[in-house]
Write a protein that binds this DNA or RNA. Structure first.
Length: 290
DNA sequence: AACCACCGCAACCGCTGGGGA
DNA sequence: CTCCCCAGCGGTTGCGGTGGT
């Protein structure tokens, strides 16, 4: 499969920020003719740009249906939930947020949400509590600030907090596993490939698809880690929604239809645990079950 | 006022996969 | 089946703005 000749090779093509008149030319042309083949757009529109650049400018900035401005709390929650299911599939995530572009969401994630999650001790990639030492040191710093006058050794506190968070998460996951074993609930995947999210403070997982996913179960706050509130406010943090264990396998989600009911719950578990083994090198699930 | 560090965002780069010849 | 073109995607970069010193 060949590569397209990069417009970077063409020294005559203009790069960098777009001028207002260039924008106008592009908008006028597309409004009149549609974009058709992007390669011919710059020629037809009288622009000294490559087609790729035109496409990007249009899709990320000039399109009339683009919603500008800050992301709302609801959008932020949705992005976090979708990311936990879809991983870095920005275009897929963008499809669930009308008026937002994949580029915008990607930037928002990398500049805001990612940092927010890291500060809260959550691995933004796996959406699981972090266990690395750097993070624990950060947590200890937070605790130093939050617990002025407290004589507790900050590092002890950090370890306790981290262990508590991990234990809480594991406890809930384990509880859910037991419920799954008992209820043997049929798979339930929405038609657009996005897992059903159940609003329930005492969650019973809705589905065990056979591709390594656990149903997203969203606590009533839809803000499991208290992202909208300060770190100190979360005395009794609500447990996080169950999210994908293997982000690498997330991309397969969209191809799954509704016909997931034929596989048994035990087969699903076997697969889940095997995928976890392959993905992590160690086994999160085996360890937890033990 | 000048400098610096950090942040957010627009744009670019390079890769991938679909589809036609 | 292979090659080529193209659109789309995700990661990265660089610039302008802003706040702190």
């Amino acid at each position: 499969m060949g590569r397209s000749p990069s417009c970077a090779d063409d020294a005559n093509v203009k790069k960098g920020p777009w001028a207002a008149e260039e924008d106008q030319k592009l908008v006028d042309y597309i409004n009149k003719n549609g974009h058709g083949s992007w390669r011919i757009v710059p020629k037809q529109a009288g622009l000294n740009r490559c087609g790729k650049s035109c496409r990007l400018r249009w899709t990320n900035y000039l399109r009339p249906d683009i919603k500008r401005g800050k992301f709302g709390e609801e959008e932020e929650r949705l992005i976090i939930n979708l990311h936990s299911v879809l991983g870095n599939k920005w275009s897929k995530i963008a499809a669930h947020l009308p008026g937002r572009t994949d580029n915008e969401i990607k930037n928002f994630w990398n500049t805001r949400i990612r940092r927010k999650l890291l500060n809260l001790g959550i691995d933004p990639h796996t959406h699981k509590p972090r266990t690395d030492l750097d993070h624990l040191l950060n947590v200890s710093q937070l605790l130093c600030v939050a617990q002025l006058g407290n004589m507790m050794n900050p590092l002890d506190a950090a370890f306790k907090l981290q262990a508590d968070a991990a234990q809480l998460a594991q406890a809930q996951l384990f509880q859910n596993l037991m419920q799954i074993m008992n209820t043997n609930t049929a798979a339930n995947v929405e038609s657009d490939g996005f897992l059903a999210l159940q609003e329930n403070t005492n969650p019973i997982p809705q589905s065990i698809p056979n591709n390594g996913f656990i149903a997203g179960v969203v606590p009533e706050t839809s803000d499991p880690w208290g992202l909208s509130s300060s770190f100190e406010q979360r005395e009794n943090p609500v447990l996080p929604g169950l999210v994908s264990i293997s982000p690498e396998s997330n991309s397969t989600m969209e191809n799954k239809g509704n016909n997931e009911t034929d596989s048994t719950i035990y087969e699903a578990w076997e697969k889940l645990i095997m995928e976890d083994d392959e993905a992590d090198g160690g086994s999160y699930w085996k360890e937890m079950l033990e």
